[in-house]
Design a protein around this nucleic acid. Structure first.
Lengths: 230, 230
DNA sequence: ACCACTCGATTGTCTAACAAGTACACATGT
DNA sequence: ACATGTGTACTTGTTAGACAATCGAGTGGT
C-alpha cells in the first residue's frame, strides 16, 4: 500500500492519491509511473490503474506518448509563462466583473486571513491558502467552465511549486498585503486597477518561479497589462 | 457498424466518430449511450467503449452520474451564457495581445475569406469557418493551455449549434464584416477597441442562441465590456 | 566504433466474469 | 386510491487473465 485513500470511485481514489504524492514531491519530475506498478502498489487491477493514470494525463500532471510509460510532467520555464499568462487572462477579467458587482467573496477573505495567521510559519504553507484565495475569486463568478479551467491551471501551478525547493523567495507578508489591496479595490468597484495589480502580482510570482527554475527573465511585453493601461 | 472511423488509437477513433455524430445532430440531446451499445455498434470491447465515453464526458459532450448511462449533454440557456462568457474572457485578452504585437494570423484571414466565399450558400456552413476564424486567433498567441481551454469551449459551442435548427438567424454577411473589422483593428494596434467589438460580436451570437433555445434575454451586466469601456 | 538484431518490459486491446448499483414494474399494506 | 416495500432486469464498476504490438536497451556482428 502506498498511502491512505478515500472512497468514492476506485480510479478517482487512486488518481487523487497520486495527485497528492506528486504535489508533495514524493514523485519527482520525470518519475516513471508504470501501469503495473500503480496497480500493485494500490492493490487494484491494471485497467483501474490505467484509468487513473489517464485521468492525470488529461489534467497535465503526467505526460506520456503512445506505448510509452507515463512520467511526472517536467514543466520548463516556458510552460510556467504559459500557465501564469493563462491565469492572468482569466483572473483579470474575473476581477473586473467582481468589482463591477462589488462582490467580495467570503472565501477569499477567509483565505487571506489564514495567510496572515501563518505569516511567521514555514514559507511553504502559504501555497495552499494562496491557491484558495485565488480560486475563491474565480468561483465567485459562478461560471462552471471558468472554474474548471482555472482548476486545471492551479494543478499545474502546484506541480511547479513542488519542484522548487527554494520557496523562501515567497514573501508571505507582501502576498498577503497585495491580496488585501485586491479585495479593497474590488469592494471599491475599481476593477481596472484590480486587474492591473493582479497582473503585477502574478507577474512577480511567475518571474520568481522562472528564475528559480534557471530560466531567463521574460520580456515584459508578455503581459498585456501595459496595453490595458495605455 | 455505425460509421467510418480512422485509426490512431481505437478509443480515440471511436470517441472521434461519436463526436462527429453528436455535432451532426444524429445523436440528439439526452440520447442514451450505453457502453454495450457503443461496443457492439463499433465492434470493440466494452472497456474500449467505456474509455471513449469517458473521454467525451471529460470534454463535456456527454454527462453521466455514477452507475448511470451516459447521455448527450443537454445545454440550457445558462450554459450557453457561461460558455460565451468564458470565450469572451479568453478571446478579448488574446485580441489585446495580438494587437499589441500587430500580429494578424494568416489562418484567420483565410477563414474569413472562406466565409465570404460561401456568403450565398447554406447558413449552416458558416459554423465551421467561423470557428476556424476564432480558433486561429487563439492559437496565434502560441499558448498551449489557452488553446486547449478554448478548444473545449468550441466543442460545447458546436454542440449548442447542432441543437438549434433555426440557424438562419446567423447573418453571414454581418459576421464576415465584423471579423474583417477585428482583423483591421488588430493590424492597427487598437486592442481595446478590438476587445470591445469582440464582446459585441460574441454577445449578439450568444443572445441569438439563447433566444433560439427559449431562454430569456440576459442582463447586459453579464458582459464586462461596459466596465472596460468605463 | 557503428549498425542491425534480438529480447525483455510495457502498453493496447480483448474476452469473460462477478459485484454493485439503478430504475422500473409489481405486489403489498393502509 | 395512494404510499410503501420488494424484486427483477439492465447497466456500470471492477477484476482476472491473456495476447499482439511496440518501445528501449543491450548484444553481437562488421
Amino acid at each position: 500500500m502506498a498511502g491512505r485513500i478515500a472512497a468514492v470511485s476506485i480510479v478517482e481514489a487512486v488518481a487523487s492519491d497520486l495527485r497528492l504524492r506528486i504535489f508533495s514531491g514524493e514523485l519527482p519530475s520525470a518519475h516513471a509511473l508504470t501501469e503495473t506498478d500503480v496497480a500493485t502498489s494500490y492493490e487494484v487491477a491494471r485497467p483501474t490503474a490505467k484509468a487513473a493514470i489517464e485521468k492525470l494525463v488529461a489534467e497535465g500532471l503526467l505526460v506520456r506518448g503512445v506505448h510509452k510509460t507515463a512520467r511526472v510532467a517536467d514543466l520548463g520555464p516556458e510552460s510556467v509563462r504559459d500557465i501564469y499568462l493563462a491565469r492572468a487572462y482569466l483572473e483579470s477579467e474575473v476581477l473586473r466583473r467582481l468589482a463591477a458587482a462589488r462582490t467580495v467573496p467570503a472565501g477569499a477573505v477567509q483565505a487571506n486571513q489564514d495567510i496572515a495567521a501563518l505569516a511567521t510559519g514555514a514559507p511553504l504553507d502559504v501555497v495552499e491558502p494562496d491557491m484558495r484565495f485565488h480560486t475563491s475569486l474565480i468561483d465567485a463568478v459562478g461560471n462552471e467552465r471558468i472554474s474548471r479551467m482555472y482548476g486545471s491551471l492551479v494543478a499545474e501551478v502546484r506541480l511547479c511549486m513542488s519542484r522548487v525547493q527554494s520557496l523562501h523567495l515567497l514573501d508571505t507578508t507582501l502576498i498577503q498585503a497585495e491580496h488585501q489591496k485586491l479585495l479593497q479595490l474590488i469592494e471599491a468597484g475599481r476593477g481596472e486597477e484590480a486587474a492591473q495589480l493582479l497582473d503585477q502580482h502574478l507577474g512577480r510570482a511567475r518571474e520568481r518561479l522562472v528564475a528559480a527554475m534557471g530560466g531567463e527573465p521574460g520580456p515584459e511585453a508578455d503581459l498585456p497589462s501595459d496595453l490595458v493601461a495605455g
